[in-house]
Amino acid sequence: MAGLPGLLLCAALLGFVCLGAPGLAVEVKVPVEPLSTPAGKSAELTCSYSTSVGDNFALEWSFVQPGKPVSEAHPILYFTNGHLYPTGSKAKRASLLQNPPTRGVATLKLTDVQPSDTGTYLCQVNNPPDFYTNGLGLINLTVLVPPSSPSCSASGQTSVGGSAALKCSSSQGAPRPVYNWVRLGSSPAPSPGSMMQDEVSGQLILTNLSLTYSGTYRCVATNQMGSASCELTLSVTDPSKGRVAGALIGVLLVVLLLSVAAFCLLRFQKERRKRPKETYGGSDIREDALAPGISGQTSVRADSSKGFLERPPSAGSATTTKSKLPMLV
Rank of each mutant, 00 (worst) to 15 (best):
P128N: 04
P146A: 10
P292H: 15
G282P: 13
E60D: 10
S227Q: 13
L144A: 05
L325R: 03
V255P: 05
N56V: 06
E287P: 15
Q197G: 11
W181A: 07
L328Q: 13
S314H: 07
S159Y: 00
L204I: 09
N180R: 07
P239C: 06
T133A: 15
A221F: 01
P192H: 00
F79C: 09
C219E: 10
R93Y: 02
Y121A: 04
G137K: 01
S314Q: 08
S227M: 08
G88H: 03
A25P: 13
R273M: 13
K68T: 11
V255C: 15
G250L: 15
D117T: 08
T237N: 04
L211M: 12
A315Q: 13
S187T: 03
G202I: 05
V178S: 13
T216M: 11
G20K: 14
V17A: 13
K274A: 15
A315E: 14
E33K: 00
L204T: 07
E278R: 10
A73W: 02
S116E: 01
F63S: 05
L14Y: 09
R275M: 10
N99F: 12
S299K: 09
V28N: 01
E231Q: 15
L77Y: 01
S116W: 05
P31G: 06
T237E: 09
V143G: 02
D303P: 08
V64E: 10
T233K: 03
S42E: 11
S229Q: 09
E60F: 06
I285R: 12
S36I: 08
A318G: 05
T142W: 05
L7E: 09
V32A: 14
G161D: 03
C152M: 08
T107Q: 07
D303W: 09
S148Q: 04
P66I: 11
P313A: 10
A261D: 07
L258K: 04
V255Y: 09
N208T: 01
P188F: 00
G15L: 14
G296L: 14
F308W: 14
A289W: 15
R176P: 12
V125E: 04
D112F: 01
N223G: 03
S116P: 00
Y280W: 14
R176D: 12
I249L: 11
V260S: 11
V300H: 07
G193E: 11
N99Q: 06
T133M: 12
G156W: 06
S171Y: 03
G88F: 02
V32D: 10
A43T: 00
H83G: 07
V236T: 09
S95L: 07
V260G: 11
E278I: 09
P188A: 07
E60H: 05
D284W: 00
A315G: 13
M225C: 15
C10E: 04
V236R: 00
N126W: 06
G215V: 08
L24M: 12
N134G: 15
R301L: 15
R272L: 15
Y132Q: 11
G40P: 05
K41S: 13
V220R: 00
T80D: 05
S305C: 14
V236P: 01
Q157D: 13
L8S: 15
L13F: 02
S194P: 02
C152R: 00
H83Y: 12
A221I: 00
P69F: 05
I205L: 14
L84W: 06
V113W: 03
T120F: 03
L232I: 12
V244R: 10
A245M: 02
